[in-house]
Simulated scan of single mutants.
Amino acid sequence: MWGCMNNSFPASYAWGNFSVLAVGIWAIVQRDSLDAIVMFLTGLLLTVLTDIIHISIYYPLHSYLIDVKRFSMGMAIFSLLLKPGSCYFVYRMYRERGGEYVFNIDLESSSDSHFAYNGLNHAGRDRSAYETIDQQDASPQWPDSSKTAQHPY
């Protein structure tokens, strides 16, 4: 956040990075929330893009590069270089908390949905956890009404 002390960046740079920091604190505190981790990861990825834009547009010329601006620009670039590693570790935290987000685009079937989540497309869905209800050889749940039960009294 040392890059935010540079007054050559607009306020959007500081607002973007500090809001992602706040969401990151929320994601660490809320250990059972997958939404917080997803929001933090999305925010980190968005700030990578916006940091590149901010640094490329607002980098000062050499004649205007005083020590404070040089330091804050260096810290902004250093923060940008560390963000892909942060994204990797946040994604690992997401996976440890039970989240699985594999984005798969099914281009072969046009009648089904084009987006299949959890890495399973229409043809390869895992149906091992489901029971079929139309089995003929299954034992009946209720006793046969043709057989009379003997009453104990």
Results as ranks from 00 to 15, higher is better:
residue 144 D to Y: 10
residue 124 G to C: 09
residue 84 P to M: 08
residue 37 I to P: 04
residue 51 D to Q: 14
residue 96 E to V: 01
residue 33 S to C: 07
residue 122 H to Q: 12
residue 73 M to F: 12
residue 66 I to C: 09
residue 127 R to F: 02
residue 103 F to E: 13
residue 114 H to A: 15
residue 7 N to F: 07
residue 82 L to Q: 07
residue 55 I to G: 06
residue 118 N to A: 13
residue 19 S to V: 14
residue 63 S to T: 14
residue 85 G to A: 15
residue 58 Y to L: 11
residue 4 C to K: 04
residue 56 S to A: 14
residue 152 P to S: 08
residue 100 E to I: 09
residue 117 Y to I: 11
residue 8 S to Y: 01
residue 17 N to K: 03
residue 124 G to W: 07
residue 80 L to S: 05
residue 114 H to M: 13
residue 46 L to P: 11
residue 132 T to G: 07
residue 127 R to W: 05
residue 34 L to W: 14
residue 40 F to G: 04
residue 135 Q to I: 09
residue 88 Y to M: 07
residue 24 G to I: 02
residue 26 W to H: 01
residue 145 S to D: 15
residue 139 S to R: 08
residue 133 I to P: 06
residue 130 Y to H: 01
residue 140 P to C: 09
residue 41 L to D: 01
residue 129 A to Q: 01
residue 108 E to L: 11
residue 9 F to K: 11
residue 78 F to R: 07
residue 112 D to K: 15
residue 82 L to R: 06
residue 14 A to P: 01
residue 83 K to V: 13
residue 15 W to Y: 06
residue 105 I to N: 05
residue 113 S to Q: 15
residue 79 S to T: 15
residue 141 Q to C: 06
residue 39 M to P: 00
residue 115 F to E: 08
residue 135 Q to K: 15
residue 74 G to P: 13
residue 71 F to C: 05
residue 17 N to H: 01
residue 47 T to E: 10
residue 46 L to S: 08
residue 36 A to M: 02
residue 55 I to Q: 14
residue 19 S to Q: 00
residue 118 N to G: 10
residue 87 C to Y: 06
residue 125 R to N: 02
residue 78 F to Y: 12
residue 149 A to Y: 01
residue 48 V to Q: 07
residue 48 V to F: 15
residue 1 M to L: 11
residue 132 T to Q: 11
residue 87 C to S: 10
residue 20 V to Y: 00
residue 57 I to G: 00
residue 13 Y to V: 08
residue 96 E to G: 01
residue 69 K to P: 14
residue 2 W to A: 08
residue 31 R to C: 10
residue 104 N to Y: 10
residue 95 R to W: 05
residue 62 H to G: 13
residue 37 I to K: 07
residue 5 M to Y: 05
residue 56 S to M: 12
residue 86 S to E: 13
residue 131 E to Y: 11
residue 16 G to N: 00
residue 10 P to L: 01
residue 140 P to T: 04
